[in-house]
Design a protein around this nucleic acid. Sequence first.
DNA 1: GTTGATGCAAAATGTTTGCACATCC
DNA 2: GGATGTGCAAACATTTTGCATCAAC
Lengths: 150, 150
Amino acid sequence: MLGSSPYDRIGSPLEAGLHQEGRRLTPQRRKVLELFENIGSGMHLSAEDVHHQLLEANTRVSLATIYRTLRLLVEMGFLHELELSEGGHRFELSSRDHPDHHHLVCVRCGRTEEFESENVVEAGRKAAERNGFELIESTLNVRAVCPSCQ
Amino acid sequence: MLGSSPYDRIGSPLEAGLHQEGRRLTPQRRKVLELFENIGSGMHLSAEDVHHQLLEANTRVSLATIYRTLRLLVEMGFLHELELSEGGHRFELSSRDHPDHHHLVCVRCGRTEEFESENVVEAGRKAAERNGFELIESTLNVRAVCPSCQ
DNA sequence: GTTGATGCAAAATGTTTGCACATCC
DNA sequence: GGATGTGCAAACATTTTGCATCAAC
């Protein structure tokens, strides 16, 4: 049995989105999304991380399902996929308050800071426009060395 | 035997760089770097791509050596490593004319356009400074849909 | 009850490594 | 001649998939 959630009776955006596409709301999918919601929007988790964190909360979801769910949640727009690390992609909650944010990553220890910049968003918008592309999103990855690793 | 090259007698930056670190100039290393030089600086190749392209030019270099060589050439600054694709990293020639350039990628067909932006570079520099990080490089990835895929 | 989802184990990728042999300097 | 590099095959890590069973609707 998987625990209850605030969405048990109120109908969540997740549930609505799933049903709209003929998909189903399962405890596993709810748990994965809840994990990201509880952990906050600045966290970057790999599939393995999600698996471990759920185990620590006494929720066993198979790794295969986690991969399937992460892909699904990205498609549905609930999560963002990041490609800034060695060894595996990472995922974060997409947040309306933080639409196009960027990452400053330490190449030694992996420490990551987030920031926003209207100039960067604007540069991406212009580049897309100039080439006739339809913009989806832009992310700036700044590779650097953090103070404690210098 | 691997074919001859323009560097056979004149001494290349590659050779100089290698010897400086007690490393050796091998035909394999020369061939990999030459491939990037001949193909031009806007091309993004995966390790597999490099392997295939060399085979087509009748040069057999093992995949293991290609991975080792790509890592080496990145460390030495001859190549740049990109993280914008599904399924494996890609590499491109680093060019002095094109220092910190950015990518506009079509999420459907993978078509990639490059561009530059002083504002973006500046935003990365500021973010690093604000957090006490030592900047290495910054890359903006703009995900979008190209005209023919719209 | 039907269809879609899960779990398991196996397969598929992409990348790294140990070791014997070859080669650069 | 000695240290470094290569090729091969095996090991690894991450992600995907086939299939029987389970559960949401």
